[in-house]
Computed example of a mutant assay.
Amino acid sequence: MPFLERHMREANDVKSLLRDIRRAMDYAVPEAQRAGADDLVDQYRDDRLALMLLREFYSFLPEAAEDWAREILRIDRRQGIFLLALASGSGRYVYLVSDEGVEFHGDVKDGCLTDELLDFFGYESVDDFVRKATGELPNYEALNQDEELCPVCHAASGEYHELGCVVEICPWCGGQLVHCSCRHDQLGVDSIETEAQLLEFEAILEERGRIPYSPEQRPSFLQHESEEE
């Protein structure tokens, strides 16, 4: 999917998410806290991942009672997957957030990560995770404002893109890897249609030397948006 088309599709998703959040907040947020809750939504009004998280929180309140989101904190990020903490009036809750969706994992203080997730994010133990997640954490920064992350696959500066990311640069011609003909030329085919072909191309690509993400790769219209903000 061309990047501009994807950007427009996500803009429509954002509008839908905002409607859902506002509707759920009418029932979830105490009247005295509504202004603060609205401010947080406005802070992330263009960030799809944060809005997905807020919709999940307000639609399924962890304590099944009135509550409001005060801030979204970043615990960790790896391979385009964010481990976020939502601080509310009643607790600090852990969510796994990516383009694929949102998963609620419980209250931070309960050490709510599975062994698989502890290993994935590089924590030696539950206690190691709890120490970090209950400590001072940076605010989650909206993706369209964080130039150190790819706006599509969320690779950090210096990391490789997720294979298939439209921002990745082709190491053969310097164009967009998903749009140039180099991938077909390297395999000697007209199109990549099987998993075996994809794996073969990935091996060829890594042998050639993939180009990691850098802020200079961000589409120009996103850079202009950041400057305007």
Rank of each mutant, 00 (worst) to 15 (best):
R55P: 01
A87H: 09
E66Y: 03
A24G: 02
A28K: 12
M8V: 08
D42S: 12
S59H: 13
M8T: 07
E71K: 07
A24E: 10
Y44P: 06
A24Q: 07
D47E: 11
R77N: 04
D46G: 04
K15H: 13
R77V: 08
R77C: 06
R9G: 03
E56I: 01
L49W: 08
Y58M: 02
L49Q: 08
F57T: 09
Q79C: 06
L40A: 15
I72G: 01
L49C: 10
R70E: 05
P62G: 03
M8Y: 10
A32V: 10
Q79L: 12
G80E: 00
F82M: 02
L54A: 10
L18V: 12
G80V: 01
D13Y: 14
I75N: 04
E71N: 04
L17F: 15
R6L: 14
R48M: 05
L18W: 06
E66F: 06
A24R: 06
L61R: 09
L84W: 05
R48K: 13
S16Q: 12
D67M: 04
P62M: 02
R34Q: 13
R74V: 02
P62R: 03
G89R: 01
F60G: 00
R74L: 14
E5Y: 11
L53T: 14
I75W: 00
Y58N: 01
L86H: 03
R19K: 12
V41F: 04
I21V: 15
L84F: 02
D76K: 04
K15G: 15
E10L: 10
D42Y: 06
V29H: 06
A11M: 09
L18K: 12
V14N: 06
L49I: 09
L73H: 09
V14Y: 07
Y44M: 08
F60W: 03
I81N: 03
S16K: 13
L53V: 13
A11Q: 09
R19V: 12
F57N: 10
